[in-house]
Structure formats: structure tokens, C-alpha cells
Design a protein around this nucleic acid. Structure first.
Lengths: 110, 110
DNA sequence: CCATCGTTTCAACAATCATTGAAACATGAG
DNA sequence: CTCATGTTTCAATGATTGTTGAAACGATGG
């Protein structure tokens, strides 16, 4: 993921409706959610949501696939991880640091 | 960190110069870097950098402190972690998932 | 086919953001 | 006190972004 791709991804998430949509999709998992259903959940006009989903797709954060008349959208977890890694890269000057993420905490509960 | 604070933070990072500045500060650690030195590194006019630093401060991602004639800026690691956690919250529907961050990899090298 | 449903595309407008240069402010040196 | 240095503030301009409504597109059922 290039520097400009990171900027695009951050910019895509830096908007109320897009962040909300992304989080819903992250929590929905691989089944995905149809555009219309998302629009209802978020209280957006179809065209407005379509605009925002296009930005998220362009940023590589979500993907859409057709299912009959519906378009199902799903979050791309790989892209999310790449983004997180980029932000924390060389964190604290490369010294192992005290920063602990919630993914890490989840995994430590074995 | 509220939803709007997250948006502010993401928006603050979603810009070439601000992302570059933040990353330099993240890697510089707690000593910090003076505004002028940062402007040189990034090739920005002082006023332009000041504008961007103000946005990062406003987003809580960095802090500035005076040292004589200089203003030293440092990254706020806590804010960074909060941001990362927010993005990955309820990742994969709450099921412990395969997403592994680089912070986590750093810490596992014990 | 034809009508309809779900979704996207487009054009237009308002609002927000980035950049620039000049001026102002704070600090420390002589 | 006065001057130079480091940094910020301000106003103006151009560029980008978000919203809206209407129109178009693709897929399905009758």
C-alpha cells in the first residue's frame, strides 16, 4: 500500500457516514450488506450512500459484489490491517513499546 | 474518544503533509522536533506547517511545548492507539480473528 | 417484452480545506 | 532597550468535498 493509498484510505474513513458504514460492514463480516439496507440503517439517500461507498471501494477498504438485484458490500480486513500497521510503523523509534491494541488483547485471551 | 474525535483524527491524518509530519514525530519519540526543523524536513513554508500542526494538535494526535525560542512537537501515542482500537473494534464480528498488527509482532519477539 | 425494484451516475450548488504572503507575537542575545 | 530569530495568525484565493434530485442502468418477475 503506497503512501497515497494510505492517504486515500484515511480520507475515506474521515467522514461521518463513511466511517459509520465501514464499521457496520466490519462488524457484519464476510456475508456483507446490501446498499439499500445500509442506506436505511444510516438514514442516507441512496445516491448519497452510493457516493460514499464508491469512495470506500476506491480506497480499497470495502468491495461490492452483485447478488441478484442487490449489491452486497463487505469490508476488506487486509486493507484495514495495512492501514493500522502503517500508522504504528516504527512506533516509539523501533523500541518495543507499551502500546497495546484491542486486537492484541482479544488474541491474548486464549 | 468520541465518534467526532475519531473523525477529526482521521481527517487530520488524511493529508500528505500532516501524515508525513505525524510519522516523523512518531519515530522521533518523546524528545520531539522543533517546528522549524520539521518545516525543513518536509519542505514546507513555516506558515503552512503551522497550519497543519495546529490541526494535528486540535485532533489530539500531537502536542507542542516551548523550549526557549523553539516549539517542540511530540506525537501522542495514546491517541494513536485509541484510533487504531476504534477501527478494529468488533473486528470480524467479535470473533478472535487472524488480523495481526505490527505492534503485536514486535511484542511477540520476546 | 414490459413494468418495477435496487442501485448508480450526473450536474449543480454550498461548504470545507490547503496554500500563500504579509503582518504580528514571543523569546533570547547584545 | 533594541534587534534578530522562530513561530503563529490572518485574509484572500483556488481546489476539493458533500448533498441533492433527476435521470439512467441492470436484473428480475409477470
Amino acid at each position: 500500500m503506497s503512501d497515497t493509498a494510505i492517504i486515500t484510505a484515511l480520507g475515506a474513513l474521515a467522514q461521518t457516514h463513511r466511517l459509520a458504514a465501514f464499521r457496520v460492514l466490519v462488524q457484519a463480516g464476510s456475508v456483507g450488506i446490501a446498499a439499500g439496507a445500509l442506506a436505511d440503517m444510516l438514514g442516507l439517500q441512496p445516491s448519497a450512500l452510493s457516493f460514499h461507498l464508491a469512495q470506500l471501494v476506491g480506497a480499497g477498504l470495502i468491495a461490492g459484489r452483485r447478488d441478484g438485484r442487490h449489491l452486497l458490500y463487505t469490508a476488506d480486513f487486509g486493507a484495514m490491517t495495512t492501514l493500522v500497521d502503517y500508522l504504528t510503523e516504527n512506533c516509539c523509534g523501533g523500541v518495543p513499546c507499551a502500546v497495546e491494541t484491542n486486537i492484541q488483547r482479544t488474541l491474548s485471551r486464549t
